[in-house]
């Protein structure tokens, strides 16, 4: 790659970095605001809060029943991750290894749920779920979240499986492996890194999935992000600091998983594979 050393190029480069810095500064600023506010006794009309306290975390925990919300959130997220893995990975394997009539249509069918706005599918889906009595329940929320996550696993896993040489499977057969042994000794070890990465991405995305959960959740099946939305929406009812404490708890839960995920995947994969 060619590095330009003229003054014009240096000015341009400086401008680009300045812009990047400005963006990151604002993101950092808004996150710092949330954290500081959650720890403040009072914060009005000044650069920094008047004093610091941790009492808002206790009150947020009790007021918003965060214990329950967190339990429900993780139950939902883990069931969604498990089901999308169990259903999505075999489908991706079939699509990567077989060329059958109508394959393009099937792939389109898996792409559409990722492209259609969540509201567009969320409203009819919520209507259907309420009709069959699943609306507002735990399983209703799980089903709603499967709509984007199963296709996501399929779409992410297809290229991963395609890059594994099918001759390796042929070789295992030649050396006498039956279907179970092929699966146990060859496919699982080779697919594991990809599956792990895909599922961690599903996990992070499901924690942050707002619209579908919002439309299908009832009072007992709210995830953290929906609870946060309601409390922000009803601002004025609770102290701002209390809402911010909840926001910090949400941030921490998400970032922990994000950091774990980033050990296995590239940040660009979080935005999905571009092709």
């Amino acid at each position: 790659m060619i590095r330009d050393t003229t003054i014009g190029a240096k000015l341009w480069s400086a401008a680009v970095w300045l812009l990047t810095g400005f963006f990151i500064l604002n993101v950092a600023g808004l996150m710092a605001t949330v954290v500081l506010s959650s720890l403040s006794t009072r914060w009005l009309q000044s650069w920094l809060p008047a004093g610091f306290t941790t009492k808002w975390y206790i009150s947020a925990w009790n007021e918003f029943q965060l214990g329950n919300v967190l339990t429900v959130t993780f139950e939902i997220v883990f069931v969604v991750v498990l089901l999308s893995g169990l259903v999505g990975v075999p489908a991706a394997y079939a699509l990567a290894r077989r060329n059958f009539p109508g394959k393009k249509l099937v792939i389109l069918l898996f792409l559409l749920p990722l492209l259609v706005p969540p509201m567009t599918i969320g409203i009819p889906l919520a209507t259907v779920l309420y009709q069959v009595g699943l609306g507002g329940t735990f399983w209703g929320v799980v089903f709603a979240n499967l709509v984007p996550s199963v296709p996501f696993v399929v779409v992410v896993m297809i290229p991963f499986i395609e890059q594994i040489d099918p001759k390796i499977e042929a070789a295992a057969h030649v050396f006498g492996a039956n279907v179970f042994q092929l699966f146990r000794y060859v496919l699982v070890p080779m697919l594991l890194p990809g599956v792990l990465a895909a599922l961690l991405l599903v996990l992070v995305r499901t924690i942050a999935m707002f619209e579908l959960t919002f439309l299908t959740a009832g009072p007992t099946s709210q995830t953290l992000v929906v609870a946060l939305y309601y409390s922000v929406f009803a601002a004025g009812v609770r102290a701002v600091q209390s809402i911010d404490a909840m926001a910090v708890i949400y941030t921490v839960t998400t970032l922990v998983w994000l950091l774990i995920a980033l050990r296995f995947v590239n940040p660009t994969q979080i935005v999905g594979r571009a092709r």
């Binding site: 990151i24 604002n26 993101v27 600023g29 808004l30 996150m31 605001t33 949330v34 506010s37 992070v204 942050a208 707002f210 992000v225 946060l228 939305y229 922000v232 601002a235 701002v240 809402i243 911010d244 926001a247 949400y250 941030t251 998400t254 970032l255 994000l258 980033l262 590239n266 940040p267 660009t268 979080i270 935005v271």
Partner: peptide
């Protein structure tokens, strides 16, 4: 890239709460 992926992961609800103050 890690820094930039954080706002995407946190999502619009959290960013909204932050911006209300910021």
């Amino acid at each position: 890239t890690t820094i930039l992926v954080i706002p995407i992961t946190l999502g619009t609800v959290l960013v909204a709460e932050g911006l209300l103050n910021y």
